[in-house]
Design a protein around this nucleic acid. Structure first.
Lengths: 118, 118
DNA sequence: TATCTATATACCCTTTAAGGAATATTCCAA
DNA sequence: TTGGAATATTCCTTAAAGGGTATATAGATA
């Protein structure tokens, strides 16, 4: 899992590819249109799209002369789930910490009764 | 926004750093402990932690001789929100598409009446 | 102060990434 | 089958990343 995720995150870790992905969020586009809108050279655009393609972040639909690139939604569901697992983990750790501190507090209280208050 | 996000994603796009992050999910740890558990050399571990630190994915707490690294939860909230924005965008595009197709269907139906079925 | 532990940095090496320019490829149309 | 448009691939160059080893630094302790 981590290996595939690393690849996915790597594909998204480049500023230009991030722009491409944001652009495709508005709808599928052919290479040339992406290049124009983002002011990228066509070869660079193709190369970035290849990276995104191999990371399963986009899919390609050939239409006559052109290649239309579509965003794949599944990947983002995976990222969301993964990312959320951290938030949840933090929350449950926090809950455990609170329980622990509460427990500690009780110990201190009862010790105080036995040991005298100073 | 995209720029900072690219840096964040890049920090998470390495297999070893991903492992570190997963490990820290279980709780804060000093460098040496991370290195041992992940079977990494100490210098590599420090270097990876530096990357994570500069991307605000972890924070460092010096305790005597050692440096305890903690996961920061805020970053993941940001990633979650960003990732979810794609899923939502896809959904609303889907809704619009459905509406469009429905509209088209109505046109076809009424044209059918005028144009004859042969 | 000398020393030990824990960690960070520096330096070297190898691999890889990204941009640019040129070229190959694919598909369409005449 | 020739030409043109859209896209992919190749080659080159430069920058940066990641691993390894050695070394510097910070804090604790005798």
């Amino acid at each position: 899992m981590s290996d595939g995720l690393a690849r996915t995150l790597f594909a998204l870790s480049d500023a230009n590819r991030l722009k491409i992905v944001e652009l495709l969020k508005t709808g599928p586009l052919p290479v040339g249109e992406i290049a124009v809108q983002l002011q990228l050279n066509q070869p660079q655009t193709s190369k970035h799209l290849k990276v995104l393609l191999e990371a399963d972040i986009v899919r390609m639909e050939p239409v006559a002369n052109r290649r239309i690139y579509h965003l794949r939604t599944e990947v983002f569901q995976g990222i969301t789930a993964w990312s959320q697992s951290f938030e949840q983990q933090m929350v449950s750790r926090m809950v455990r910490l609170e329980a622990y501190l509460e427990q500690q507090q009780k110990s201190v209280d009862s010790e105080g009764v036995n040991k005298d208050g100073g």
